[in-house]
Design a protein around this nucleic acid. Structure first.
Lengths: 224, 224
DNA sequence: GTTGGCTTGTGAATCGTTTCACAAGCGCCA
DNA sequence: TGGCGCTTGTGAAACGATTCACAAGCCAAC
């Protein structure tokens, strides 16, 4: 069942569809068409059907998709019908915010360990999770069978932490530090970078202002 | 100077190049080639040259690019040679973390207003920013010339806040709520969604495990 | 059982992005 | 000044993702 290669953007859309299906389910909908799903997701119906067809055919011609079945299928595909064990490294502002973000455990991502270097934090607890010294990372990660690591350290420390996580057997990393990380091929890495997103917005704003100066009209360049 | 259309990924790479140029500058480098920049950025040299060529030609054949000049050019392109005024809506865990994130003001994104509905928070201060009631959003945003809005509210409130921001004249929004937002065409929108990124990782992990079961070998599917 | 309206699943066409490959050009050295 | 090594900038080719468009199929109605 190895799927040749599913693009990142396709996977992201599957997440979106799944959320919409949950909404629809709450609203009591039983069936949904690719057209309706597409409208809500901001995509085209062909896109929805193509995305789903990468994994099988789940709909009924003439009727659409069963909301409940499709949701279950997407959960299966996305690996969400189980719990994942998460380790958080770096309990600063972002790290603390993540620890308190109940939505994560509700969605099946359970933070089972947290690490920091600050002696003032180590030994304490945040939202029920004990904070351990970084030196114990490998042992604890292995003991607790952690699958996903979250890096919320200062940028200077991030590469080292990534390596430690990989060595401890973690094969998926979510990185909040604004640096490029090198990880072994078998490790999946995603980086979330607030500053970079803001710079993207800044680019759009600046482009809009450049346009205004040269064309004299006030319509910006949407990227909604 | 309207550029036909610059893709999102190209802009993101420009951000990356700029950071690398700052690093290089700190290390005393004067010149840099597209090859070297590409290696550090995890791209190809052709990609680097193409990205830059979208905006002009900044290098010298046979020599490479001036680190200082190229950094200045990229800052100009990305709209970073000025300050942007930011309004934060929702001072919960994520909002507070963002307020305390000094890197933002260092990069020229200054939070000049914060809003919340909780009576316990309104009137107080966080990291030097006064928290105002949501009802005053339009007035304050206009008064202070806010260009960028950050939405860090619960998902139910996000769409309404987006609309209020747009009505108040904000043309760039960074959204942390896990919902699809509809905004006017002239408003640039970026959404950062931790749960969705984790689901992307979950997909990779699940795919890896499916592979293991069927092929018997333990090599995951890297996405580094 | 047949007709008609609707929707899926998917090859083919289109569109956009990335990579290739090379002429043009710079600077150093003899 | 001429030659050489190196690098840019960019058309063309390759690749990948999205959209089109339609046959196949389902359901309801009559």
């Amino acid at each position: 069942m190895t799927h040749t290669k599913i693009s990142d953007s396709a996977v992201r859309r599957l997440s979106i569809y799944l959320r919409l299906l949950h909404d629809l389910s709450d609203q009591g909908a039983v069936l949904v068409s690719s057209r309706e799903l597409a409208e809500r997701a901001g995509a085209t119906s062909a896109q929805v059907r193509k995305d789903l067809s990468l994994f099988g055919s789940f709909g009924k011609r003439g009727r659409g998709y069963s909301v409940a079945e499709l949701a279950a299928t997407l959960e299966e595909i996305l690996g969400l019908r189980r719990h994942w064990r998460v380790a958080l490294v770096g309990v600063g502002k972002i790290g603390t915010a993540l620890l308190g973000y109940q939505d994560l455990s509700r969605r099946g991502f359970e933070v089972v360990a947290a690490f920091d270097t600050a002696t003032g934090k180590v030994g304490g607890r945040q939202f029920g999770v004990r904070i351990s010294p970084l030196a114990e990372l490998k042992t604890i990660v292995r003991e607790r069978g952690v699958e996903i690591g979250i890096i919320a350290t200062p940028p200077e420390a991030a590469q080292n932490v990534a390596q430690r996580l990989a060595e401890a057997g973690v094969t998926a990393i979510l990185n909040f530090a604004p640096v490029k990380l090198d990880v072994p091929e078998e490790v999946s890495l995603k980086t979330m970078d607030v500053a970079m997103e803001l710079e993207g917005l800044s680019f759009q704003l600046a482009a809009g202002q450049r346009d205004e100066q040269t064309t004299g009209n006030g319509t910006g360049s949407g990227a909604g």
